[in-house]
Design a protein around this nucleic acid. Structure first.
Lengths: 189, 189
DNA sequence: ACCTGAACACCGTTCAAGT
DNA sequence: ACCTGAACACCGTTCAAGT
């Protein structure tokens, strides 16, 4: 007897999911246009929903940012896990840092999320934990191999990368490789 | 016969100067409270003037920021000029970078101004030029002494320092010396 | 349950009116 | 000349009212 109810619930959910997708698309359009402020009212209008609906789906600007960044953050986690498993530690470190830098430059929402000390969404929290865990494993191997100064922690690496991203952005987006090389040289034991 | 007019002009100017000082004080108070947004209306109210007066003195938020940062920027220029003249090139480089980092951490308005590619005020422009000139002189000596990689320019140094400041801030403001050491090691030839 | 959008408080910016 | 502050447009956020 709950079949109709299920169907109607599904219908509601499908609708809700479509609205959510429209909001995310509208937000991405704003980001692509260089606007990271993500005005809730503007998103509501562009997505054809009431403001309250935007707030229901994304209780804060930070939550919205994290939803936008989630996909790329997941890609970065993959990359970090591959790096942690890669035999050549020095190459793995270089590749991971470069990937992290490029993902941040390619998506300003990811840079914003990584610069934030706390996650607003559970998904972000678990992805961040996975990222940190993989970096820690890589770092342990790098320390064991004497590839990197012993006092460098995973948090240091994350902060330094945030900084590097900032430096590259200040200069207009070129120079990634040069600045990356400077960081890698500075990290070496 | 223009004596009275002069006097009255002076009176106006004194008044205007006092109002200006009140606005700057109000703005500094906001910055000290951690608010870098500097709402013009809030400053007007706190300084006891109309909003229009704030706009007359500071035509944009950027101009206001630069006015707030000017004093410290001048200090930094002094520091850079001393560094350019200091015999021990390596020590001069280290001292300048550390001073620049600490000035930025001590005053977020300076960090904001240094991260901006263009200056809104003429004073800022000339201070920035003096800063760049001093850094170039120091860099030439460092290159001649083989103390620093040859491809590093003054603009690179500025961007990297912006990044370093960002990295330190992300981590909560400790770690300046450790991160500075990493940058210096990375810059070395 | 979920959605809507009016309503309130706020801020940026301009400009007609005052002195 | 300089200053004032009302006025307009905008945005964040909430919540009573609708379905």
């Amino acid at each position: 007897m709950d079949y109709p109810r299920t169907v109607s619930t599904n219908a509601l959910r499908a609708d809700s999911a479509r609205a959510r997708a429209r909001m995310l698309r509208a937000a991405r359009k704003l980001v692509a246009a260089g606007d990271l402020e993500l005005p809730m009212n503007a998103i509501a209008k562009a997505a054809g929903v009431g403001v309250g609906t935007v707030y229901r789906h994304f209780p804060s600007r930070q939550a919205l940012l994290e939803s936008l960044a989630a996909e790329r953050l997941a890609l970065l986690v993959d990359e970090a896990e591959r790096a942690a498993a890669e035999p050549d530690v020095a190459a793995a470190l270089a590749r991971l840092l470069r990937a992290a830098l490029e993902h941040q430059l390619g998506d300003p929402t990811l840079a914003a999320v990584l610069a934030e000390p706390e996650a607003a969404r559970a998904e972000t929290r678990s992805l961040s934990q996975a990222l940190t865990a993989a970096v820690i494993r890589l770092l342990e191997r790098a320390h064991a191999a004497g590839e990197i100064r012993p006092e460098i922690t995973a948090e240091d690496l994350q902060a330094l990368l945030c900084g590097l991203q900032h430096a590259v952005k200040v200069r207009g987006g070129t120079d990634n490789d040069r600045y990356l090389a400077i960081l890698l040289r500075g990290l070496r034991a």
